[in-house]
Design a protein around this nucleic acid. Sequence first.
DNA 1: CAGTATCCAAAGGGATACTG
DNA 2: CAGTATCCCTTTGGATACTG
Lengths: 116, 116
Amino acid sequence: MNMNNDISKENILAIKDAIELLGGKWKFCILYNLQKYHTMRFKDLQEMSVGITPKVLSKQLQELEDNLLITRTVNATKPVTVSYEPTKYAEEVIPVIDALLSFGSKHRKKIKEKYS
Amino acid sequence: MNMNNDISKENILAIKDAIELLGGKWKFCILYNLQKYHTMRFKDLQEMSVGITPKVLSKQLQELEDNLLITRTVNATKPVTVSYEPTKYAEEVIPVIDALLSFGSKHRKKIKEKYS
DNA sequence: CAGTATCCAAAGGGATACTG
DNA sequence: CAGTATCCCTTTGGATACTG
């Protein structure tokens, strides 16, 4: 098995990087919501990501911000609100989300058929 | 924020399902290699997934098999060899792998530029 | 060759309560 | 509202050694 070519190795590294960046239980869902509604507040995201606790949501958002995928803006309202938005760079992730969504839907149908 | 529509909820569930199925550190790399070479032995996969231990590889393969994404075939050679192949159904995952690979490559370039 | 067995460390994630 | 603090549990994955 000839695996001694750089392209394969590069590709493997690219996939690993992407997964490291976007992996975990929540990030894709957060990005999906932000792409769909464009701007959301902390509370909105918490309600939409059913089951997530504030601590976990906070951490996911910080990591996404660190990776330049979202921006965080504090609004001078009373009480203070914070809005999150996807960056221009985050558009690069849309194809991944779409593909994941498409596969997930097919898979759910397949499972549904199996047990009906 | 109007999130009370079933489509959004369904989509979120689909994404969560897909990630649950394919998430983790190795599965996408394994599937990438299997799509590329079509058939691989345990040892090949271990060498290509640099750093993976046999125990972990074994578990990933079992989970992929349970989810109907790969097949496992024992060959009556001496010593015994085992070959893994992607199923027809696994073709549904290719778009996800491609998108992930594409994003990962762009991201690696972006990081490389940043620190050069 | 293709795994399994055992042990262990770290990361991820959740429950609950609290704060500016 | 938008988090943080603390505590804790489970899952994931890795090291090492061993087997048919």
